[in-house]
Design a protein around this nucleic acid. Structure first.
Lengths: 335, 335
DNA sequence: TCGCTTTATGTAATCGCTGACATCATTATA
DNA sequence: TATAATGATGTCAGCGATTACATAAAGCGA
């Protein structure tokens, strides 16, 4: 491989001079600078990042931890993050957890190893008490999850108001018996106090209460993630004696599962059952029943969390911003 | 940060001994080995990759270059690659080109910089003559694109037979006037000889010829990528006097665009127009007209290309495998 | 018990790059 | 003109790991 000394030799200068040229330091004459550029070009030289890193420049890389990249929500989020990170001259290392705690910890180990200068967690697998211990090894920012910790920058959608408005929307359409799905495990839901998902839930119940509506606990569905989960939920619903007339799903996937099975179960959407999605995924509007859904500000979320994290890495940020972005209801045909 | 010498000091041994323990070399007594493990654990030590790399171990990272991660085809491909790469104890650095030549070259520069030990190109932006020059800096493998070069490992779907069978399928359904869409630019299609997409096209025309059917050049649509492109194509079609009775799209996106607009243009699918997708994306079966489509072996493609590349990096591979995987027709309602 | 191999451990050079420090040469200031 | 300040350039230590080489101790057959 081509090293800085080879460039120095060819250009007839010292390695320091080459280094100065590379890093655009002053006090190099035009003549030598030109020679160095010529030599670098001729040899096709690019400085080796690993060597630079040993001298204290970071890895110029940030890690993005997601449960699964095939989930469009996360691939869109990664896309937004990558674009921003790239613009700020960093690289993006993607790590999938597949929902496993151990993978999240392995990802955080990248901080120790100095493979990454910072990490964006787009979902939390481990308890915060465990994760917080990694803060001393590098910057951590959280996106799309609620963390009640001053020292951690956090960018989330305003789930409370989003769901409140979504619920209001259903009520405005004359619906009063509203079911609710969440991706959370029912157990965790009980254990944790104020977290991301209960923000959503709180928005939902707040809207109900404002209209003197009650919630039937039989209509709470947990662990709902996939299209198949949505289908299973609709099957359950169709066998209930007390049927809801609307359902708030945790994601467009679940909503897709529901609307896809409605016809064969002879359920009319939205007359018999209004279905409200969350995310506004690209295909949501092309389904047999185009989804009415709550759009998450994915692009802004990704952009802002990346900017905040890199600000923190560079030390040019006021510590630990908490950024909350508005959700938006997209009315279509399913509700 | 914790260094190897701190571990050595705490364990009361030399750095060499620690290094031997880390790398599992022989000739270390049980007693010292235990002490070293204890000290590493106590200090939370992890070796710094950058320092190791300077001693010749690679970066243990491979770069995956895709046009856009939000395209489900690529996010599924990346997923398959990442899982395999992870299993082989490498890391995955994702680079999006957004279809820009320069971004692809920047990605290839990672090889020079030794940020990655190898690169998987999942789409080609630049001419091969330009890319081939980077081979001297590290391993390059190509996935999902045709490269007629002995020295390059390549994993592709068997587009020729896939499209031939897809066309046969349409013919077996009584269709004789078949339109064809491709993502390629019409210009490039003329310039290049045997490439990925013309393999597809060849499969298509081979099937037509076998049944003495001719192809109307007015039914060739180029630059077709998105849902919107599909909608535009259907609008064009609906205004033709000579209308096709089937259409082969380059992707499920284009097919989605077509079926989504069919109802409002009063075109019955598949009676008036059969629509054949390519990819079998997860939502394809939940559309208003579930897509009949040609499934690409994405998982195997990703897995195999990753294995081959890493074999090559380790030097444990016979040079430059060419792997061709079968496509599969998934019959649903759109054709 | 003597030489020889094997095991256990340490010292120091090295990877490519940066930057503190040193050294002249040149220009500005008194 | 003497002195100080600034510019241009070079020498070399050091970042954290690996590894060639050196050395000492232990094992072993004759």
């Amino acid at each position: 491989m081509v090293t800085i000394s080879e460039v120095a030799q060819l250009a007839g200068v010292s390695v320091t001079t080459v280094s100065r040229v590379i890093n655009d330091y002053p006090h190099v004459s035009k003549a030598k600078k030109d020679k160095v550029f010529w030599a670098m070009d001729k040899l096709g030289y690019v400085p080796m990042q690993a060597a630079r890193q040993m001298r204290g420049s970071g890895s110029q890389t940030i890690g993005v931890v997601v449960p699964a990249i095939i989930n469009p929500f996360f691939s869109y989020l990664i896309n937004a993050i990558e674009r921003t990170v790239d613009k700020l001259h960093y690289k993006t290392l993607i790590i999938q957890t597949f929902g496993r705690k151990q993978n999240e910890l392995t990802a955080l180990d990248y901080l120790k190893r100095h493979q990454v200068d910072g990490i964006i967690l787009c979902a939390l697998e481990n308890d915060w008490d465990i994760i917080k211990g990694y803060q001393k090894y590098g910057q951590i920012a959280v996106c799309n999850e609620y963390v009640d910790e001053d020292t951690i920058p956090m960018v989330i959608g305003d789930q409370f108001n989003g769901l409140r408005q979504g619920t209001e929307y259903l009520i405005s359409k004359g619906k009063t018996k509203i079911a609710y799905c969440t991706g959370r495990d029912s157990l965790i839901l009980q254990q944790r106090g104020k977290n991301f998902d209960s923000d959503r839930y709180l928005g939902f119940t707040t809207a109900l209460q404002a209209h003197d509506l009650s919630f039937n606990p039989a209509w709470l569905f947990t662990n709902a993630h996939s299209i198949e989960d949505g289908q299973a939920i609709l099957k359950q619903l169709s066998q209930m004696t007390q049927k809801p007339d609307a359902i708030i799903t945790g994601s467009d996937e679940v909503a897709t599962g529901i609307v896809s099975l409605a016809k064969s179960l002879n359920i009319k959407i939205p007359q018999d059952l209004s279905v409200l999605g969350v995310d506004d995924q690209p295909l949501a509007k092309f389904l047999s029943h185009p989804l009415t859904t709550i759009r998450q500000p994915i692009t802004q979320m990704g952009q802002q969390v990346a900017e905040v994290l890199i600000d923190n890495i560079k030390g040019t940020a006021e510590p630990a911003q908490k950024i909350k972005l508005d959700l938006q209801i997209v009315p279509r045909e399913s509700a």
